[in-house]
């Protein structure tokens, strides 16, 4: 399946889902003529039309000049690389999950370490040192200097 076809199909699905959610927005006695559902419904219809144009066009060009659509993209076909991308994403998700418990500095050091290791492919003492000192620099910057209350985690209760 070529990419435009996939994009057009996903676009149509999104338009459908969004339309359904928009249509269920409750009516209000304070509503104007357009209403809270008005423009969302228009957006859904426009997206659906654009998606259909894309699908139609991709089906036509797919017969004439197969695969030219994908040549311009710098991201190769999914499959081999998707796991790497998902891994990168997972590091962020794990960070969000652990930061309330482990606190900002520890979690961030973990994130720095994990990403450097994941992308560099080697574990070394340097990575660990950079990760820990990097996390401390971030802490100084965001928590001490800017005064942003990043989670302290369990450490906040200990000290």
């Amino acid at each position: 399946m070529n990419r435009d076809l996939a994009l057009g199909t996903s676009g149509a699905v999104i338009a459908g889902g969004y339309y359904w959610l928009a249509a269920t927005i409750p009516d209000s006695a304070l509503a104007d003529a357009v209403g809270p559902q008005g423009l969302p419904i228009v957006y859904a219809v426009v997206l659906l039309l654009l998606s259909l144009i894309l699908v139609a066009r991709s089906l036509r060009t797919a017969n004439l000049e197969p695969r030219t659509q994908a040549l311009g993209s710098r991201i190769p076909a999914p499959g081999f690389h998707l796991p790497r991308v998902l891994g990168m994403l997972a590091i962020g998700v794990v960070y969000i999950a652990v930061v309330p418990w482990l606190g900002y500095v520890v979690s961030l050091a973990g994130l720095l370490f994990a990403v450097t290791w994941y992308l560099g492919g080697v574990i070394s003492r340097t990575i660990a040192i950079v990760a820990v000192s990097g996390a401390i620099v971030f802490w100084l910057l965001f928590v001490r200097l800017l005064g942003i209350a990043h989670p302290t985690g369990v450490w906040g209760q200990l000290f």
Binding site: G92, V115, T116, G134, F138, H150, P151
Partner: peptide, 29 residues
């Protein structure tokens, strides 16, 4: 690898600051 790790750290730290919200970090992801 170092550069990207620090950009990632910068993103999760900076986005959190908008409303001190981990929810926002999730939205950014």
């Amino acid at each position: 690898p170092y550069l990207m790790a620090f950009i990632y750290a910068l993103v999760v730290s900076g986005v959190y600051a908008i409303e001190t919200s981990l929810f926002h970090v999730g939205v950014a992801l």
